[in-house]
């Protein structure tokens, strides 16, 4: 069974696995849960020293990293908790939180 079919919002009761069982991995990728967010982290590539503390602490795996460097934030899944901004070293402060409505 494909991921798409399991999580299609219009899937009928006959089409989905019983009991809410999820028989494949990584289905969270299909759900854009970032719309819960009220505050938004803004990452500055200029200030960032790529210590990756934000990547370690992010509870939603929303810090995007390529070749050991932070490339941005996955806003489809970031909930705006602000942990990344908090753990960013005081002398760096490469992540600032803004109000989602300020965007």
């Amino acid at each position: 069974m494909t991921t798409k079919k399991i999580i299609a919002p219009d899937a009928k009761w006959q089409e989905i696995p019983m009991a809410g069982i999820i028989p494949t991995a990584g289905t969270a990728k299909e759900f854009k849960t970032g719309d819960w967010r009220t505050r938004k982290p803004i990452h500055s590539e200029e200030k960032c020293i790529n210590c990756l503390r934000c990547w370690v602490y992010c509870p939603d795996s929303s810090i995007l990293v390529k070749d050991g460097k932070v490339t941005g934030i996955d806003y489809d899944h970031c909930k705006g908790c602000g942990i990344c901004a908090k753990v960013c070293p005081d002398k760096v402060k490469a992540i600032t939180m803004i109000n989602q409505s300020e965007e």
């Binding site: 919002p9 009761w13 019983m18 009991a19 809410g20 999820i22 028989p23």
Partner: peptide
Amino acid sequence: PQYSLLNKDEPVTMGPLDLQDFYFEHKKQ
């Protein structure tokens, strides 16, 4: 068993959060 937590070849999640969009379908089942 159709699904088993010990079947490492076909890993599954059992008992996940099931909200307004799917809980009712599972009750129908």
